[in-house]
Design a protein around this nucleic acid. Structure first.
Length: 304
DNA sequence: CATGTTTCCTGACAGC
DNA sequence: TGCTGTCAGGAAACAT
């Protein structure tokens, strides 16, 4: 399940690998769920653009697209994508943008990917077999392909002019702002951490891990945490996110980076997925409860 | 508005 | 073996 550290790892890998490459065509699967924008809007925003950068915003991967590539001429006639069986129902779109047709200078745009639970954004050689549950393929001038694969279809694809996350970035937010975000919130601190309007990018694993490090129980009402507890949470969250990024993220279900490699932060989890196992500090069995429909792991002795 | 609940979706796994 | 049922979870939609 990709959260901030996993998406950061993927975005960094993609930035290194595809910045400067040109998107020549896009294929979108027949299942409409992963598309937040219309297929036509995605196609016209994406085709014949140069990828000028890739970055993470919250749990989103944002591709910055420079339309300059569209001016250099028509993109090639599309290569036939293999495995027609699996892909026959899809739409292959390589239409020029409206601006390009009208001879207007096209504006930069952004291709935004949310991986949901099981989404992957893989950089593949075009000769590689197309995996089951592939919902989008971006063909690049270099001959490679960016493929969006998502069995559970909780992931989302969209295009935007200036994508911005609603909540604060946990790695950038300052203490004062962090404290004010939880002010007056009656919901459990665990739920508040997961609320993307408050903070962007924190998911179930790092919510549990940061609460353990801060010695705060997940069910505590956010508004009732002391300033000192919020300060500890603030520091713990930044710390655990940085450590996880350094480890290439956590591979708990099927997360892999853009090159299909696993992370290894799952071996450093102190409470997540450790129900019944001894607390690493006091040996008390780690407890698992459900808060807002999310499994939550904590040490009943260390966390108050 | 704030908060709680349901929904989407498929693979993995337990139990029979 | 193979079926059925349950669970996992991000975030939007819906209900309270």
């Amino acid at each position: 399940m990709p959260e901030l550290p996993e998406v950061e790892t993927i975005a960094r890998g993609l930035a290194r690998a595809v910045t400067g490459d040109v998107i020549e065509s896009i294929w979108l699967g027949s299942k409409p769920e992963p598309l937040k924008s219309t297929a036509a809007a995605i196609s016209s925003a994406v085709v014949s653009t140069t990828i000028s950068g890739v970055r993470r915003v919250g749990k989103h991967i944002v591709f910055n697209l420079d339309p300059a590539a569209g001016k250099t001429g028509r993109h090639r006639a599309g290569r036939t994508i293999a495995s027609a069986n699996a892909l026959a129902a899809g739409r292959r779109l390589a239409a020029k943008s409206r601006a390009a047709r009208l001879g207007l200078p096209a504006k930069p745009s952004q291709f935004v990917v949310h991986l949901g639970m099981t989404g992957r954004m893989l950089l593949c050689d075009s000769s590689q077999e197309i995996a089951k549950h592939t919902h989008a393929i971006l063909a690049l001038k270099s001959g490679r392909e960016l493929r969006f694969v998502d069995p559970r279809r909780f992931g989302r694809l969209s295009v935007s002019r200036e994508f911005a996350a609603a909540g604060a970035e946990p790695l950038e937010v300052e203490l004062e702002k962090f404290i004010s975000v939880f002010c007056g919130r009656k919901l459990p601190i665990k739920s508040a951490l997961l609320n993307q309007r408050l903070l962007s990018g924190v998911g179930n694993i790092y919510a549990d891990e940061s609460l353990f490090r801060a010695a705060v129980r997940p069910r505590r009402r956010a508004a009732l945490l002391t300033k000192e507890e919020l300060r500890r949470l603030f520091l713990s969250l930044k710390e655990v996110l940085k450590e996880a990024i350094a480890a290439g993220g956590s591979s708990v279900s099927d997360y892999v980076n853009a090159n299909g490699e696993s992370g290894f932060f799952q071996f450093q989890h102190r409470v997540y997925g450790r129900e019944g196992e001894p607390c690493l500090i006091c040996k008390t069995p780690i407890r698992r409860i459900v808060i807002g429909g999310r499994s939550s792991h904590y040490c009943p002795k260390c966390q108050k």
